[in-house]
């Protein structure tokens, strides 16, 4: 049962991820990316990490993609306003992407693909367990990342204030 679910989700993930890249209209790219996030959340649920799945949906599919959509809506994107790229940058980007592809294939070949069993009936992904882990074993990284977020927030407020003057 869960194998078929996984296969369906995996295929949907790949299709939607490809659609993000191949869509001509940036609006559709954003929407496909949202679909992609949904399927990834499905993978988390299959791994019994419900908290991660829901937070993934709230933060990525909910908040961040709304901002993406916002920006895409406000930009006037059509063929006339699209910046024309020179041949040099096209060649450079093709080489960079090709190199990245080689590295990716090499790393996949180097990984030993052994047997993988889904953790059965573990509570590892539940809110209580995640919370306990965060506030005992990973307290320092957790607090440091919160300071990072705080500084990002203050920074954005500062930028917004500067613009007014």
């Amino acid at each position: 049962m869960s194998l078929y679910l996984f296969l369906t989700l995996a295929i949907l993930t790949i299709i939607s991820a490809l659609a993000v890249v191949f869509s001509k209209n940036p609006m559709y790219s954003v929407l496909w990316l949202i679909v992609c996030f949904f399927t990834i959340a499905g993978h988390y649920v299959l791994l019994n990490a419900q908290f991660l799945a829901i937070v993934h949906l709230i933060v990525y599919a909910g908040a961040i993609m709304v901002l993406f959509l916002f920006v895409v809506m406000l930009l006037n994107l059509n063929a006339d306003t699209e910046p024309h790229k020179s041949n040099l940058s096209k060649i450079a980007s093709a080489i960079a992407a090709g190199l990245f592809f080689v590295v990716l294939i090499a790393s996949i070949r180097a990984t030993a693909l052994g047997e993988f069993n889904l953790p059965n009936k573990t509570n590892i992904g539940f809110v209580e367990e995640v919370g306990k882990k965060l506030f005992t074993d990973f307290l320092l990284p957790f607090e440091i990342s919160s300071v990072l977020f705080l500084s990002a927030m203050i920074g954005s407020v500062l930028l917004a204030k500067k613009e007014k003057k």
């Binding site: 949906l57 599919a61 709304v66 539940f126």
Partner: peptide, 22 residues
């Protein structure tokens, strides 16, 4: 009866805006 019930509520609410935006 999800054990992340309230968070599910938030996920759905935050997706609800897409209908209007689209």
């Amino acid at each position: 009866d999800l054990n992340v019930g309230l968070l599910y509520l938030f996920a759905v609410v935050s997706i609800g805006g897409y209908g209007i935006m689209i």
